[in-house]
Design a protein around this nucleic acid. Structure first.
Lengths: 357, 357
DNA sequence: TTGTAAGCGTTATCAG
DNA sequence: CTGATAACGCTTACAA
């Protein structure tokens, strides 16, 4: 391990003072051509890199934002992370990922405690801002300790949350157009003639699920009958589609099912094939939230593109505004779009171009 | 924004010196019960958090490791990140993600430059260690500048690379058992009676692809004929399976195809269905690298579980050994396992339990 | 145009 | 057991 070379060393080598070196590093203030060249030469020859740490201590910003999320294997989050990392990278910010693992398969310990500890960590690392992608904040009834921890965090640094707004929370929220999206898929199914439509996936007590389900019910009441038996809310993952579809069909006589998202749809379709039902002939499967890859399944999934990718971009923009004390313009995510493929019948021209974006 | 409370403030409040406060924070040295209580009270009441930054400056370690990867949407990498974040979290290390985006759909700029810059960034942030998941290092012919940058980085802090070993590189490598894995799927297909087997996916000039392909050829020569027409190396993603399978079948008369990984297999199966070929009746599709979810496709993919999850764990262990100057035991990843499902025929008992682990 | 010196918030050494 | 005080590497007035 080579020992570290510091600004002092460079100054010595280039026969200058540390402030002058600092000036050339940061391109600030006047420095004579010759001195600048000598300094640059010294930097190059030693392979010197200024220490972000020291820089932060003295100037107190890190050019880093933290992203907190409860499950990194979830495609919804991956999508967001990708966009966040791209857009913040473009603005010169690094991303530090805090995967609390409070929702995935590897859960351990109390979610509230874990996430609250993560807040503390965020503070200690002096990141310039935080984007929260989900976790406890997604609950309809957010734990009060968590909420006060989050609010007090928001007091100390800019926080943007990508989730449905919570009135108790003072942070800036970026919300999706849930009702509009649900309307699209419901109306599509109705227009195709389906009347006994069910809903599968999500979890009661989670905002996004409750909102989708209530939206679903409301819409259905306008056109047809529904009862609670038409709905099964178990969870958000593939296996939930797989394990949930049969029970759902047993408790209700359906000709179509809307899945919480493409993952749930995939699981359901797989199980249906195993029990000898074909999609969409015997039963149509639609999805309310498009993920990457749904155009390659058999049948390809008819789904709603919520344009989640725009969320990441918006969140970064807003956060940077907050960080720079600029006024935050209110930015709306793109409106959802129906993506017609095969799983609801009425095979529209299939194209692999219907990808996320 | 509340202003920051520092150790000094606590000292003042608790009527103690900063050193004493530091002692209670770090639980080091003797502190009288009463003083400790007063200090703890002050900390609690102010919501004080020690600054990692200042701490690092003075003690020079960050309890942070960086993970560099070229494409966060790739399931192979996601799997690794997840494991790394879990295992390093368990040891009290945070992960900072550096997504260089040099392999994904959003490429921009010269990969070597981008990744080399990322190295600089790693240095500046004074992370305690780095895990490189792929990128330029995956090339058979690694760019010399990149290599020397990486080697010199490795001189300044511990670096572990998850990839096939490169002789020019001094870093510690964690390698997978590629040949063993390939052998399993090839032998499986042969044992089922397939003789005209092809290979689809990967990219020439990438170590893992070249190695799999040469392994494939060697094995095939033992039992049957192969020629270069049986092989089409385009890339690693779903769409490559989708676009590649037809050309491959046109240039060779095959009864089975081994896909680079499950993604490629999915794309290929989708395209086959579109052109009216059924899997495995008309053609069998196997995969050389299992990803999560392959048990839910139709047909479910017969594949090789390379136990990639163990890689992440090993990498973290090794890195921490390096960081702590402990001797690094040589740890071998788990041996691959064949996962028989449906896409190669001979429908073995299907179980959704064949998940990654 | 350049240099001096005072912080930034900790830890760690060394006296009390 | 406790408290000064010197680092840690950089930025930024302020002087020169």
């Amino acid at each position: 391990m080579t020992k570290k070379v510091t600004i002092k060393e460079i100054a010595r080598l280039a026969n200058a003072s540390v402030s002058t070196v600092s000036r050339v590093i940061n391109d600030s203030g006047y420095v004579s051509i010759e001195k600048r060249q000598k300094i640059e030469a010294a930097i190059k020859s030693t392979g010197y890199h200024p220490s972000q740490i020291a820089r932060t201590l003295s100037s107190s910003h890190t050019q880093t934002i933290a992203v907190m999320l409860p499950d990194i294997t979830n495609p919804y989050f991956i999508n967001l992370i990708e966009q966040i990392s791209i857009h913040s990278g473009a603005e010169g910010y690094q991303v530090i990922l805090m995967n609390t693992d409070t929702a995935g398969a590897h859960k351990h310990g109390d979610p509230v405690t874990i996430e609250t500890n993560a807040f503390a960590n965020v503070l200690e690392r002096q990141v310039d801002g935080l984007i929260v992608l989900g976790g406890e904040i997604d609950q309809v009834h957010v734990n009060p300790e968590y909420m006060s921890a989050l609010n007090s965090l928001n007091d100390q640094l800019p926080v943007v949350v990508i989730s449905q707004k919570d009135e108790q929370c003072n942070c800036l929220f970026v919300e999706r157009h849930i009702d509009t999206g649900m309307k699209m898929i419901v109306q599509h199914l109705l227009s195709l003639g389906y009347r006994h439509i069910g809903f599968l996936g999500g979890q009661q007590g989670i905002k996004i699920a409750d909102q989708r389900i209530s939206s679903f019910k409301k819409l259905m009441h306008l056109y047809a009958n529904t009862s609670d038996e038409d709905i099964l809310a178990n969870n958000f993952y593939i296996e939930d589609g797989y394990t949930g579809i049969e029970p759902l069909l047993q408790q209700a006589d359906l000709d179509a099912v809307i899945a919480m998202n493409d993952q749930v749809a995939i699981g359901a379709m797989r199980r249906l094939r195993e029990i000898g039902k074909s999609v969409p002939q015997d039963i149509a499967i639609g999805s309310a939230d498009m993920f990457a890859g749904g155009e390659y399944t058999t049948p390809a999934i008819t789904t709603v593109n919520q344009h989640d990718t725009s969320l990441g971009q918006i969140a970064v923009k807003q956060l940077l505004h907050l960080i720079n004390n600029e006024p935050v313009e209110s930015l709306e995510p793109r409106l959802p779009e129906l993506v017609m493929r095969e799983s609801c019948g009425e095979h529209q021209r299939f194209t692999t171009k219907d990808s996320l974006s």
